[in-house]
Design a binder for these strands. Sequence first.
DNA 1: ATGGTGGTGTGACCA
Length: 261
Amino acid sequence: MKIATFNINGVRARIETLTGWLSEAQPDVVVLQEIKTQDEGFPRESIADLGYNIQTHGQKGFNGVAILSKLPLEDVSRGLPGDDGDEQARYIEATVVGHRALRIAGLYLPNGNPQPGPKFDYKLAWMERLRARAKALLATEMPAVMLGDYNVIPEPRDAAFPEKWVNDALYQPESRAALRRIVFDGWADAVRLRHPASTRGPFTFWDYQAGAWQRDNGIRIDHVLLSPQAADLLIDLGIDRDERAKDKPSDHVPVWIDLDA
DNA sequence: ATGGTGGTGTGACCA
């Protein structure tokens, strides 16, 4: 089962980018971030035409996440538990039933800039809520995958120029420590499983500005975390870097895994 | 030191 994450940066503006990639890559399950639309504005038809079931958790203008799946989606839940007052659409979960059942969590972690400030505080609080939810998923002992745009650069080798990020929320010691705490509870970072010795990258995001793509000035912020039961099923992993060079690209590229599920 | 690009929706915010 091929499962991917893609921050699409506006699904209506980039519907042809998305359908072109779906047709080529043929993922079974995709979590999308930054759909930037309410549920009723989501371009369902052109995605359903490719054989996908669609579950959205949209918001007007900003944020918004979705799950697309060629297999049926069950027990869908929207929103990250732990704060009933949180209005931002950044989290969706569902169960996908292949020959095994898998729990999929698609997330768009807060950017947190500028830091310090209320947005950074929201990021760190959101990460504590994510850790609690992640622990609950581990406790089920069901194969689980938590993937999406984490907006955290884990280590210096995850940036082309780490020194440029020292004042950025994505690279603060607090952000990095919060991600480590989640991972150390029992998750595997799938990209690092497959690229353990790389001293530079691989990257998943290149800014639109200043020729970042042309200079390969990238960062790794889109992550795939696997529960132990899911890690046991890992067959393959890829980062569709070529998508960044195409017309009307997102600033992120898809990251995918193939699971024996 | 700088939002230089891009989406949303028509102001100004978000990344």
